[in-house]
Computed example of a mutant assay.
Amino acid sequence: MSQNPRRGSPRSLVQLLALALGVWLLLVPRPAVAAPEAVTVGIYVNQVASIDLKNNAFTVDFWVWFRGPHRATSPLDAFEIIDGRVNSKANIIKKTLANGEDYAAMRVNATIHRHWDLRQYPFDDHDLEIAIEDADLDATRSVFVPDPESQGKDPDVVVSGWDIEGFDHRIDTHLYHSNYGDTSIADTAETHYSRYVVVLHAKRRGSARFLKVAFALLIAVLVSWCAFFIRPKDASPRVSVSVGALFAAAAGTLAINSQLPDVNYATLTDKTVFLCLGMICLSLVGTVASLSLHYLGREADHRRLDKIGAVVFPLLFFVLFFGVVR
């Protein structure tokens, strides 16, 4: 007896349906994703008022402007300075250009916080960064575009003790690992914002700063060296010279530390302080040893020790000193 052929299996029907769905997805046009609006931004630095190493900050005066399509909230009202605060705003300009774009500009005085790298202080150089973001729209809706023809810095920018060189800029997309609870910004725990960054380079002017910082320490070491030329029988003046030099160096150290923030590494100045204090202590040890030999009646030995100390002490100091500051 013949059997009726099978017209189809459930598996073949599923495959046909999947194929039809795939063709439909290819043919049906997808909704276009709106591109973020481009906002042209620029900064012109008028002056760097101060560089404050102690408080990890610098104060800068600059013009900032935005140019782009019209929107409800102007970028001039929505931008924020990263790690900084606006001290004052002046000369606010808002208008519509002939091409229909909105233009907004103003003069800003701001204090911006930076974590300085002070390992080479006082031969340190630093980058002064001015970074701004649009606090209203994330990078899916607004991105910055630099204005290289108009941005820059005034050639008369001067900071006492520093040379302000160069003017670099870049556009970053900064990632924040939060949407700050606003699901209209993003439905994930991450948001991206366009960031415009301007970098000025502050370089130390000459070596005068080092002499001002270390002068008291160097004098204290010189005074402690003089102890080797005082006769052991003048015990009180000889000990007083070394002890006085030690206290002078300690006072100089306090003055240096008052100019810098607390850091968890040794700066070049710290290394110089350690060297100077160590040499003064070495002079004090030599003084005590020479006095001990004198009281024991070993005159030839204490004279020999003083002569060796008078020669070796400065040589050792200069070798170690140039090893530290090179």
Rank of each mutant, 00 (worst) to 15 (best):
I164S: 08
P122N: 07
V324A: 01
V23A: 15
K212A: 13
D77S: 15
E299L: 10
L16T: 13
L254A: 11
R71T: 11
D187V: 02
R298Q: 13
D301A: 12
A251N: 04
D147P: 01
V324L: 02
R85E: 08
P148I: 12
V197C: 10
L217W: 00
A135R: 03
V263W: 12
Q15T: 15
I81P: 15
I92Q: 09
R204H: 12
F274R: 01
A266C: 09
H169F: 10
A110L: 08
D147E: 12
A90K: 05
L19R: 14
I132Q: 04
I92P: 02
D156N: 11
G68M: 04
G84M: 05
L217M: 04
D138A: 02
V263C: 14
A208H: 09
C281N: 08
T272Y: 01
A189V: 01
V311Q: 06
V241I: 11
D125F: 14
K89F: 03
G323V: 02
V39Q: 14
I112L: 07
D172R: 08
H169M: 12
L128S: 05
R205H: 15
V86F: 01
G181K: 03
K307D: 03
H177N: 13
S142E: 10
D136K: 07
T73P: 02
K94F: 02
I171Y: 05
A186N: 05
D61S: 14
A208G: 10
V145L: 13
A202C: 12
Y193G: 01
P146R: 06
R71L: 08
L316F: 15
S2Y: 04
R141V: 08
D262P: 00
S12K: 15
S184K: 04
A250T: 13
R304V: 10
S142G: 05
K271H: 07
A214H: 10
V145R: 13
L246K: 06
D187Q: 09
S150Q: 14
C276R: 00
D234K: 09
D301I: 06
A104Y: 13
A235C: 01
A255Q: 09
D52F: 05
L137E: 04
P261I: 06
K271P: 02
K94C: 03
S194I: 00
P5H: 06
V312D: 14
D172N: 13
L291Q: 15
